[in-house]
């Protein structure tokens, strides 16, 4: 078994008489996208802030790449972790480029390398470098600001990304776009991401594994599919919500997983543009409704036929 990238070991944090985090043990593997989800006051932000030592545990230990972080210099530790917060917190008197360059400059990178890195990140976050490089944060929309925030967090090429409700203040459309882009960035870069949200739908859409917190305690740590199909208790079930449960269930499985693999001869292949194998079933259903068909061909990542998805397969559990 690989050593976890982030490990909480019996971590407790109290503020006065209130216990924010209560004996949480949790491991996040290298490259994993872990989402901490829970209502406000459930301790998820505090748990996140203990990873970069913006908060210190009263009991227990936090390990990063196997090392107990209590023994590390906080500044050096933080430069190895990207940090994104809901209110973004860009430096208002610095240009977009200078903001993104914060950590590389702190790390003393040569000027040319910093510039190259800034441009690459702006392109990764779909910000045209020539247009945005010299602008100040107040000249950007909320969504653009948070793109800069994410780029700034990635700048030092940290192995770990900590994100505290990064998209909660954005409008639903921008939020959706940034979510999709973050998922792509995660796939492309293989960063270990610890992401806090109160929105279970966001957690289901992004996470490899979800850690559900309630009043400082970890109530379930599982994949989105398990959270949907085997919620640990009524609290988790309520958090998922009964409304549109079926569609959420379809959203965490892909067309490739449910397709009937034995490809029929080309003559019996159902007509229509094949679905990519990694398309969530929820979108596959939407495609069927839109095209008015009850079966669609599925292709794999290389574009080869990978079976046929039938409408009936969607309701099979």
């Amino acid at each position: 078994m690989t050593r976890p990238m982030i490990a909480f070991e019996g971590v407790t944090k109290r503020f006065g008489s209130w216990t924010a985090v209560d004996g949480v043990s949790l491991a996040v593997e290298e490259g994993e996208f872990c989402v901490l989800v829970g209502p406000s006051g459930s301790g998820k932000s505090t748990l996140l802030r203990m990873v970069n030592r913006l908060a210190a545990p009263d009991a227990g230990a936090v390990r990063v790449a196997g090392e107990d972080i209590a023994g590390l210099a906080p500044e050096a530790l933080r430069r190895r972790m990207g940090y994104v917060i809901q209110s973004v917190g860009l430096f208002p008197h610095w240009t977009v480029a200078r903001n993104i360059a914060t950590v590389p400059v702190l790390l003393g990178w040569p000027r040319a390398r910093v510039r190259e890195r800034v441009d690459a990140l702006m392109r990764l976050l779909n910000l045209d470098p020539d247009r945005f490089r010299g602008l100040y944060p107040h000249q950007l929309s909320g969504g653009q600001q948070q793109r800069v925030g994410v780029a700034r967090a990635l700048a030092g090429d940290p192995p770990v990304l900590l994100m505290d409700e990064p998209f909660s203040a954005l409008d639903p459309i921008t939020r959706g776009t940034l979510r999709t882009e973050l998922a792509q960035i995660h796939r492309k870069t293989g960063k270990t991401i610890l992401f806090v949200t109160h929105d279970m739908d966001e957690a289901l859409a992004l996470a490899d594994r979800i850690a559900v917190l309630e009043q400082g305690r970890l109530v379930q740590h599982a994949t989105p599919r398990e959270i949907l199909t085997r919620p640990a208790d009524g609290f988790v079930r309520d958090l998922v919500g009964r409304e549109e449960w079926g569609l959420k269930r379809l959203a965490v499985e892909t067309a490739g997983e449910r397709a009937r693999p034995d490809a029929p001869p080309p003559s019996e292949q159902p007509p229509g543009e094949p679905l990519p194998g990694d398309m969530p079933l929820r979108r596959a259903l939407s495609e069927m409704i839109a095209r008015g068909v009850d079966r669609l061909p599925v292709m794999d990542a290389e574009g080869r036929p990978a079976g046929v998805l039938h409408l009936a397969d969607l309701v099979r559990s």
Binding site: N52, L54, P74, E75, A76, L77, R78, R79, Y83, I85, S87, V88, G89, L90, F91, P92, T102, V103, L106, G149, R152, L162
Partner: peptide
């Protein structure tokens, strides 16, 4: 000075002296 700006300066690994002088 907005609190989120200070929070992100700390989270970014800036030392207190740098936060004071540069932010």
């Amino acid at each position: 000075v907005p609190a989120p700006v200070l929070e992100s300066a700390r989270g970014m690994g800036m030392r207190p002296a740098a936060i004071l002088l540069r932010v």
